[in-house]
């Protein structure tokens, strides 16, 4: 059993390749209980792959992964991963709600079928969680009727409905229109304040800086550098980290406006002149 001082997540020298293409080349990563840890880095650097390894959606060829007291690298077969997945929530970039189920049923189906909660209790819990993400007025709606930001908030509530010890967020705002990013980040921010252990893969640098206890910078399948948010964003030690942050945040030393924001706010008129 994990004691309080053992980290909730520990990766040691994790290697994964898709065929002949190496994606993770020796990842070491630690997440303490109650921590919010962000993984940042350019696209294709293996960030999302790390999250998928944590619950066995992908299997590394080499390395040790301990998640919530479970040695994930020693699990074999789909059924062996189920107890772990009950305790680790996953929120996806494309929300991945079940389109044939109402918002309420999206939140109750797994607690009922997997955890064995009575229907009434699952429903009450679901309504409370929908209120928490400010979506209780859409309990009867279907996912197709909701905006991206609303769907993503429901997806977060769905992950919470399993009462997880840890939630993994995989670029959860990347598919959203800019005006919806805030409502989703607010919900995640509240969760981390309540002490939920979170691992986030994100391109929202300001947000990562604001909420993270630890930040990891990955590039080409390796952890280039990690440290506290203050340390990594303001005093990056590696040239590659500096270059990435400079690109993602604008000029170093000046107060940052992520150029993703600038690009997103360009209207068609800007492009035509």
């Amino acid at each position: 059993m994990p004691s309080t001082d053992t980290p909730l997540v520990r990766l040691r020298d994790v290697h994964l390749a898709f065929g002949a293409t190496p994606v993770l080349k020796g990842i070491d990563l630690t997440v303490g209980k109650g921590q919010a840890v962000s993984i940042i880095g350019p696209s294709g650097s293996g960030k999302s792959t790390i999250l998928r390894c944590l619950t066995g959606l992908l299997k590394p060829q080499r390395g040790e992964l301990t998640v919530a007291g479970t040695a994930v690298h020693q699990l074999h077969g789909e059924a062996a991963h189920r107890p772990l997945r009950q305790r680790v929530g996953f929120v996806f970039q494309q929300y991945n709600l079940f389109p044939h189920l109402s918002v309420l049923d999206n939140l109750t189906v797994a607690p009922r079928k997997v955890l064995g909660l009575p229907a009434r209790e699952a429903r009450e819990q679901a309504l409370a969680l929908l209120a928490k993400v400010r979506m209780q007025h859409k309990a009867a709606a279907f996912p197709g009727e909701l905006s991206g930001g609303q769907q993503q908030r429901v997806a977060i509530a769905r992950a919470l409905a399993m009462r997880p010890e840890l939630i993994l967020f995989d670029e959860v705002t990347s598919a959203l229109d800019p005006e919806m990013v805030g409502e989703v980040l607010n919900v995640i921010g509240e969760l981390t304040e309540e002490g939920m252990t979170c691992v986030l893969v994100t391109h929202e640098m300001r947000f990562a800086e604001g909420i993270s206890d630890q930040v990891y910078f990955t590039e080409h399948g390796v952890i280039v550098e990690h440290g506290s948010a203050e340390q990594l964003f303001n005093h990056p030690g590696e040239a590659r980290t500096q270059a990435f942050l400079q690109h993602a945040l604008g000029q170093p030393g000046r107060r940052r406006i992520p150029d993703t924001y600038v690009l997103r706010n360009l209207s068609p008129y800007h492009l035509s002149v």
Binding site: H81, R82, R85, F92, L97, F98, H100, A110, K113, V114
Partner: peptide
């Protein structure tokens, strides 16, 4: 494939992935 991934992440068994998530979407 993302529906499979989401269902597996919620600790559904293979049979439950079919009965709860995949087949209901197949009928239409």
């Amino acid at each position: 494939a993302t529906q499979w991934e989401a269902a597996r992440s919620m600790a559904f068994s293979r049979a439950q992935v079919f009965t709860q998530v995949i087949l209901p979407q197949c009928f239409t």
